[in-house]
Amino acid sequence: MESDEQLYIRVRGGDRTALAGLVERYHGPLLKFLSRMTGQTQSAEDMVQDTFIRILTCRGVPPEHFRPWIYQIARNLARDYFRSAAFRRETFYLPDEDQGDDWMAAPVETESLALQSSDCVQVNALLQCLPARQREVILLRFYQEFSLEEISTITGAPLGTVKSRLFHGLRRARMILEQEEVGQDE
């Protein structure tokens, strides 16, 4: 099977079939990543399109490793979304107390988890409870199965910071889940 990098070089040459191949490979995974990241399917679809447009209009040297690169673009678009006026209009805005970050989704009240019906919605609610920096590391690790070194490249954060975000994110996620289970038992 042709590698992503080879397909991308053909896309840069104007090959429609290669573009269809890349879309086939990445449309679903990127949509899932961005939906989980933002909690908004419609915004995620827009960002997936923007991600592909960015790689199509990129005039620089083709990347050595395509997969981390396209996720880096998608992740940056998600970051821009959190910084955008549209996002601020829809939700309130808090600085990240852990890292001094300037972007994160407003934490969802943990009580609301129990109100969600399907598992998918429950997971989404839990993910939205986490600061965006921690959420992205968990998503890239667990669902996209990137190594921490690759996540460090994608997010532009040092490896130690990535580890710290993963650690704090998992601890927080576990705590929320346990609180939820206790709440349901009672």
Binding site: G28, R36, E45, C120, Q122, V123, N124, F142, L170
Partner: peptide
């Protein structure tokens, strides 16, 4: 528990 919980989410299929 957390890992299995996260696994239940299959994500949005296009």
């Amino acid at each position: 528990a957390l890992a299995h919980f996260l696994e239940t989410d299959l994500g949005t299929e296009p």
